[in-house]
Design a protein around this nucleic acid. Structure first.
Lengths: 213, 213
DNA sequence: CACCTATCTGAACGGTGTCAACATGATCTT
DNA sequence: AAGATCATGTTGACACCGTTCAGATAGGTG
């Protein structure tokens, strides 16, 4: 490729395969589910030989971790949007919860992959330490909702509890559909908010009622 | 082996393979993890040819479902024990939560298998309809803790919320270890109870504070 | 006894993750 | 400009996997 002439030239051997592979994996994941996500299928989808990925990822696991990482970024984005769009600061935590579960519902296979405990646990904690991670956003939203920011221990407990509760709801929603209850409550979002209301830490009232010593 | 003489005779072709296979699968799961759980490995462990399982399970999936079913039964047992041993009725929900998370910690691979959303969703909901299922036990414990049993809709929401929260905590605990926080709080169980205290629905106070209309 | 059916084995198929050997071509050095 | 170098790609192979099918084996039934 001498000149950057027309549209789709292959500038290098491939271009940048790493990204192409991750994209291909994500495409397969959405279209055909986790069962169809083989390394060879990813290579096929990217138009490359089965051994090619090994020059960019030492393992199938490492590729999946890259895919999962992209998922965490997308989820953080969703959470940030929900936080920005919240009518009042104290609504933010609930809105984050809704956005979180919606993300899990819209990308069930990707969400499962993100939490796949078979792989190394490094992916999520590492991501949690970043500036605008979902975790720290939840923490800030809790403070905005009235959580005491000086009691670090309690704040961390509240953040973990919130995250666990919403994660549990998200996984549960993918596992069981609760359709009759949803209908009785008037739809998906109503059900969601009703459940969130039952998690104490998600309302200032709940927060207050749990302040002990 | 013509006569039913001594201890381990093989009365039929094998005895009863279905159970032996499920046991073998459970053994592999605990010893080597989910990655090593191949149908062939299970057959090997049971001392039988790779094709033998197909006379008892139509699929690898069907075997895994049997294993998962056993897991649900064991979990129900744990919950029942926690409920019986609770000092006061209103402590039962919290104690159930502790027992639940402990079960998930002690059998991480089995727990993952039980919630594997790749398989058919029939396993868990079906089990939830049984008499002494974990789900209905949680519901009863909530009533004992002061939840209004006449408001069926609210009761179901509370049960789901409780289950989601504890499931989330269990999965999260297997995903991330929270060691520094655990140390600061004085151990595993202290951490666990601290988190549970932050789920509003798990304390009568939390229950009361969420009663709206 | 002969027949039937359930259970198990052996061999085979296509698919998978992974690796070593080889090919290719962009970049660096001279 | 020419040749060396190194990252990137391909081919072919290996062991293992889930699954199937034809045949062996043995219990139950007439």
């Amino acid at each position: 490729m001498r000149e950057t002439g027309s549209a789709h030239v292959k500038p290098y051997h491939h271009g940048d395969l790493s990204r192409a592979l991750v994209d291909a994996a994500r495409r397969i994941l959405e279209a055909e589910g986790a069962a169809a996500l083989s390394l060879r299928a990813v290579a096929r989808e990217a138009g490359v030989s089965p051994a090619a990925p090994y020059h960019h990822f030492k393992d199938k696991t490492e590729l999946l971790e890259a895919v999962a990482h992209g998922g965490w970024e997308a989820l953080s984005e969703m959470i940030a949007q929900a936080r920005i769009n919240a009518a009042r600061p104290q609504d933010a935590i609930t809105d984050i919860g809704v956005a979180y579960v919606n993300f899990a519902r819209d990308n069930p296979a990707l969400y499962d992959l993100m939490y796949d405990t078979t792989r190394d646990r490094t992916a999520m904690p590492q991501h949690a330490q970043e500036e605008d991670s979902g975790y720290s956003q939840v923490q800030n939203a809790l403070i905005a909702a009235g959580c005491d920011p000086t009691d670090e221990q309690d704040l961390e407990l509240a953040t973990i509890a919130s995250w666990c509760a919403v994660h549990g709801l998200a996984e549960m929603s993918n596992f069981k559909d609760f359709q009759p209850l949803k209908d009785a409550l008037g739809g998906d979002e109503a059900f969601l908010r009703a459940i969130l209301r039952h998690f104490g830490t998600f309302s200032p009232a709940g927060l207050a009622s749990h302040r002990k010593h």
